[in-house]
Amino acid sequence: MSDSSYSDGAAAQPATRPEQTAPRLMLKGITKQYPAVRANDDVTLIVAPGEIHAVLGENGAGKSTLMKIIYGAVRPDAGEIQWEGEAVDIASPAAARKLGIGMVFQHFSLFETLTVGENIALALDEPFDLKALSKRIREVSADYGLDIDPQRHVHSLTVGERQRVEIVRCLLQNPRLLIMDEPTSVLTPQAVRKLFATLRRLAAEGCSILYISHKLDEIQELCDTATVMRGGRVTGHVTPKQETHASLAQLMVGHSLPDYTRREHNPGAVLLDVKALSVASDDPFGTSLENVSFAVHAGEIFGIAGVSGNGQAELLSALSGEKRGLRADAVTICGKPAGR
């Protein structure tokens, strides 16, 4: 972002909103009907300059459809969009970017075999010089604590680094509204902290943030205001820090959540035994398994945690027999070798 457009706000400071009579973004009566479902039903949303505004709801509540309407990727059937006090028709993502709206999607749209600089160049609407663009990428990424090498190929990046590429791509276009769709779903806790610091700085500089999530802890920590959705409709406009998990959850699901108590666990016999399982990935961008060992007992709910892309898919292929291992005894099911 250019120094002429924004002031130097510290990342740890709360967002300061420039004085402006009109909201940055206002949606009135937005409706979108698909053949089997009404994704958005008479939705109203107001976002102020410099505000981090959450759109909160369960999966299928209509959050992503609404964001795609704002970004011009989906056309609404009814309703009005106002941008800085004027009615606008956002016919395409290019039109949204021209207004100053950027979006980082939940599923990244990057080409694995291209470099960071080449991926960013593909998203620009104006002519560019790749050498000059690489310099800008380094400057902007370093300025916002999102250091990324424009010469690296995307297939060599971690998930958190790939998200940095998407954010820097938006920042190069000087957005006045940045949409983040489920941005922490694939991030480690450390990467989440870095992301929050970046978003707070952007808000302090006057950029509005639309933050889509269903994670209540994150919403309460980061966001100034929240619009809660359920079944395509708005169920409330709240200040997250003044709400409890229970009150936010009730707005999301329409009823109080039941209380769960952890049952006593008495493990039975070992039904699945994995011993030093190593399987090379056929995918050049996949993750090979190295000496994976664990045991699953009868009557047990066994969890496998990790950020997406760290071998979960490869492990499932090895356990299901889709990918044959080198040793039959590496996977034992009900006492019988099944690794081959």
Rank of each mutant, 00 (worst) to 15 (best):
residue 155 H to A: 04
residue 155 H to D: 14
residue 155 H to V: 07
residue 156 S to R: 13
residue 156 S to N: 14
residue 156 S to C: 10
residue 157 L to E: 02
residue 157 L to D: 01
residue 158 T to I: 08
residue 158 T to M: 06
residue 159 V to L: 15
residue 160 G to Y: 06
residue 160 G to M: 05
residue 160 G to R: 03
residue 162 R to M: 13
residue 162 R to D: 01
residue 163 Q to A: 11
residue 164 R to H: 15
residue 164 R to E: 13
residue 164 R to D: 13
residue 165 V to L: 09
residue 166 E to M: 13
residue 167 I to V: 15
residue 167 I to W: 09
residue 168 V to M: 03
residue 168 V to T: 02
residue 170 C to I: 12
residue 171 L to W: 03
residue 171 L to D: 02
residue 171 L to P: 02
residue 172 L to Y: 07
residue 172 L to E: 09
residue 173 Q to H: 07
residue 173 Q to I: 00
residue 173 Q to M: 13
residue 175 P to M: 09
residue 176 R to W: 00
residue 176 R to N: 04
residue 177 L to W: 07
residue 177 L to S: 12
residue 177 L to H: 07
residue 178 L to A: 03
residue 179 I to P: 11
residue 179 I to M: 12
residue 179 I to Q: 12
residue 179 I to H: 09
residue 180 M to R: 06
residue 180 M to F: 11
residue 181 D to H: 05
residue 181 D to F: 06
residue 182 E to Q: 10
residue 182 E to D: 12
residue 183 P to I: 15
residue 183 P to Q: 11
residue 184 T to V: 12
residue 184 T to D: 14
residue 184 T to C: 14
residue 185 S to Y: 14
residue 186 V to R: 10
residue 187 L to V: 09
residue 189 P to C: 11
residue 190 Q to I: 11
residue 191 A to K: 08
residue 191 A to G: 04
residue 192 V to K: 12
residue 192 V to Q: 12
residue 193 R to N: 09
residue 193 R to A: 13
residue 193 R to I: 15
residue 195 L to P: 01
residue 196 F to C: 03
residue 196 F to E: 04
residue 197 A to G: 10
residue 197 A to P: 01
residue 197 A to Q: 14
residue 198 T to L: 04
residue 198 T to E: 01
residue 198 T to K: 04
residue 198 T to R: 03
residue 199 L to W: 05
residue 199 L to R: 08
residue 200 R to S: 03
residue 200 R to P: 04
residue 204 A to D: 11
residue 205 E to V: 02
residue 206 G to V: 07
residue 208 S to E: 04
residue 209 I to G: 12
residue 209 I to S: 07
